[in-house]
Structure formats: structure tokens, C-alpha cells
Design a protein around this nucleic acid. Structure first.
Lengths: 148, 148
DNA sequence: CCTCTTCCCATTGACGCCCATATGGTCCCA
DNA sequence: TGGGACCATATGGGCGTCAATGGGAAGAGG
């Protein structure tokens, strides 16, 4: 109800510790509780070098999107590769942290810090500088280059 | 009613205290009450190095615009990156102050003082000198240079 | 048997919720 | 018209709580 806890908003940067863990911002954790999300589904963004994190419904939406285009098109092929081949379930530990796996590091370029970015119904993991650059580019009206 | 308290007008500069808080000018707080705004949606402006502050309706307007395009399109992704990733809900403390977070400092360059600028249906937070410069430029009819 | 993960606890610093003080202005009244 | 009570705003600071982070130890898997 309060607008504050029902959507993923804003961005914040946290450190990765020696064990490869990083705290999810408390505000985001509250949204997860509010939405009853316990299992996190992580997948690669179609456009940006970022990992999208949300509940199982996030996967549902992406699958519907894939289904809405010609299943034999290169676009559908590419999306399926990212969603089905690159998706993974994760859980938070008791302190609200998640493991930054090689899968995440490799796709995003994250090494020592993670920028958490709210996306309303999900949030994303970014390499800090990449996020700054992408946001600045978006303000200028430029679109990110897309993989062929 | 009188026209004085229903719009954000004029500008004022206040100090940030040792704990990183700053008082929102009483005139602006009155407008917030008049408009029934309790939760403040703060957005990193698209053009200027300033934070725009308004009610939840400010976010609603942007979200309707996003909803009007294909949600999986690059355009929607780009707008969400700015509107969701660059916005956050905040609330004032009992004395009418708000925390000047890194989210605000980093984007505006604000360090020790904040200039509050009325924009009719919302107001903005500026680094004082940046506001002076932008206003002088506007008087000369020059347009702002977009952020790099 | 060794390594990686999971669970648990400790520390520290930040933030929220209070209450206190200063400063400047307004209004009333002598 | 000058003084002074009164008031609203801006600002300062104490203190409890929670978040972010670090690290030990037990458990699982190779």
C-alpha cells in the first residue's frame, strides 16, 4: 500500500566479501517479503550487461514474451538461449546475502562491488561503472548496442 | 485555495547538518500537505544534475508512458532504467527534514548545502552553484549541456 | 582428506525517532 | 513607536535499533 515497499526502486552499491557474498539492500528484501517471493530466478537481460532477479513470475513473463514471437525466428532463438540456457534459481542466506557466482561475474563484469538497480517488478545486478555509463547513455537518448 | 500553498514556487538554500539531513523549506512542506503528499518520489532529472521531488503521481505518469510501449522493447527497458533505477521513495522526518543520501549527492554534486527549487507541481534539489549557473544560462537563452 | 558451502554470531556504523535550542519575524499593547 | 511576548522555522544532538559486513565453525560433497 505504502508505495515504498511494493516496488523495486532506486539503486545502491554494496561490497562483495571474501567469500563472494553480497548483501541485498534491505529495501529490496522488504519488497521480496511483501511480494511473497522466496525463490529468486536470475536471468540475463536481453539488452544490458545485467542480471535480472525476480520471483518465478519473472520467468513466466519472459516465456510468454518468447511465445509471442515467431518461434523459428532468430529473435526467439536468442531469447530462449538467454532465458532457458542462462537462467538459474538462487536463495538468500539468513542475513539476506546472495552468492555472486562466476555466471553472474562473467555476464556482468562484476568483480568487487555490485550495484543493485530497481526495475519495479524485479531488480538487477550491475557492474557499478557499467550502470553509470548505461544510465548516462539512456539520458542522452542513446540506446545500448545489441548483440547480433 | 489562495494559490500560495498549492504550487511549489521560488527557491531557498538550506544547510546539511552533521548527520546528513536538510530541512525542506516550510513553504514547500505546506504545499505537500495541501496536496496530500506523504511519500516523496525522488527522481534523477533527465536533463539537469538535479533531483526532482513530487508525489507518487509523478511516478505514475512515467509508468503510464512506459506501459504505452512494448514492455520488452529497448525503449521500455531504457525508460525503466531511468524511472525505476533512477528514482526512489523517501519520507520526511518529524521536523520536515530529509536525508541527503549518496543517491542524491552523487548525482547532483551536493555536499554541504541544498538549493530547493520550485517547479509548480514538484520541486528540485540542486547543488547551489550549479543552480546559479543553470539559471544564468537559462536567462541567456542557452540550453543545458546534457550529462556526459 | 580436503574444499566449498551453509549456518551462526560479532562488530561497527548508519539511520529513525525523540527532544532541545537558536534565530528571525510578527503581532499586540503600553 | 518602541518593547516584549509569542511563534514558526531551521538546526543540533542523544540514543536505540537495524543494516551491512566480517569471520568462525560445522556440514556436504568430491
Amino acid at each position: 500500500m505504502s508505495g515504498v515497499t511494493n516496488r523495486f526502486l532506486s539503486n545502491a552499491t554494496n561490497r562483495i566479501d571474501a567469500k563472494g557474498r553480497v548483501s541485498v539492500p534491505a529495501g529490496f528484501r522488504n519488497v521480496l517479503v511483501e511480494r511473497g517471493i522466496q525463490e529468486l530466478y536470475c536471468l540475463q537481460d536481453f539488452i544490458y550487461p545485467a542480471i535480472s532477479v525476480g520471483g518465478p513470475d519473472l520467468l513466466d513473463r519472459y516465456e510468454r514474451q518468447i511465445a509471442s514471437v515467431d518461434p523459428f525466428s532468430p529473435e526467439a532463438n536468442r531469447m530462449s538461449l538467454l532465458v532457458h540456457g542462462g537462467g538459474v534459481f538462487m536463495r538468500l542466506d539468513a542475513e539476506g546475502r546472495l552468492m555472486v557466482t562466476d555466471f553472474i561475474r562473467g555476464f556482468t563484469g562484476i568483480s568487487s562491488e555490485v550495484t543493485f538497480v530497481g526495475r519495479s517488478d524485479h531488480f538487477q545486478l550491475w557492474q557499478p561503472q557499467a550502470f553509470q555509463d548505461a544510465q548516462a547513455a539512456a539520458r542522452e537518448g542513446r540506446f545500448p548496442s545489441r548483440p547480433a
